[in-house]
Design a protein around this nucleic acid. Sequence first.
DNA 1: CCGTATCCAGAGGGATACTG
DNA 2: CAGTATCCCTCTGGATACGG
Lengths: 145, 145
Amino acid sequence: MEATVKSPSHCTGTYGDDGDPDPFQWDAREDCEVRQILDRVADKWSLLVIALLDRRVLRFTELKREIDGVSQRMLTVTLRQLERDGLVKRTVHPVVPPRVEYELTPLGGTLHTTIRSLVTWTEQHQNEIAAAREEYDAREKATLS
Amino acid sequence: MEATVKSPSHCTGTYGDDGDPDPFQWDAREDCEVRQILDRVADKWSLLVIALLDRRVLRFTELKREIDGVSQRMLTVTLRQLERDGLVKRTVHPVVPPRVEYELTPLGGTLHTTIRSLVTWTEQHQNEIAAAREEYDAREKATLS
DNA sequence: CCGTATCCAGAGGGATACTG
DNA sequence: CAGTATCCCTCTGGATACGG
């Protein structure tokens, strides 16, 4: 019951390079592997988990406590996906009570920089966005008059 | 029927700065505005739309054609959200047949850099991720023996 | 051409209870 | 503590048809 990628191998690189020097060929087909990965990385909870694991080792419960609103189920699912993608390392210490620790892999570490910049951008521009929304909503209401 | 943010004003900055110099306070509460915006920006279709509008003006149909798999409805919804957030400008030319053009606002342009880096990362590491998945699945199957 | 409106299936995701 | 399993419901999002 695997949701394996149907596309043969890749969909980046040059296809149709004789006609279109478009640097954004990647988004063309939805069975594109890049699209699959983007969906995974741009996930609501994945984003938060990766950001939190910046050079820190965290236990399951610690992660759950830090990420407000995540259910046990979704945290588990998210961590499994990230582990499968090789972004997070899961270590089980065979003691009682069980102790499971999560940390970023080197690969996951490289993603962190990008995600960090996304978060920073959001923090810096949240006021502009809030203003834009208010203006839009106001104009919306005016139109309905 | 607005899904307006319930939190008072903000949730970045220092709260509890006496105890924890954690640079990631932002993710704490789920009604946090930063979280709301992250969800919007990290959206499946938003990502693709913003990337495609890099210094180009595109019509509705052109966007739909370029983004394989998007339905008319979801493209409309996505564009409205982006417009409301002040990231995309929508221009209606009053001609027949109607001509509607979309472009990034200056604010949207600043986001583009970040998204671009996310896409680049994905392209560069897709092979590593694919390998990690295979290894994980193989180990998975071995465990079930 | 560029939408909006309506309907509806299905995945996402929460709550709860149970195991090692 | 760290999950797995189950139920169930909401909300996403696709298909279709219609309006400006």
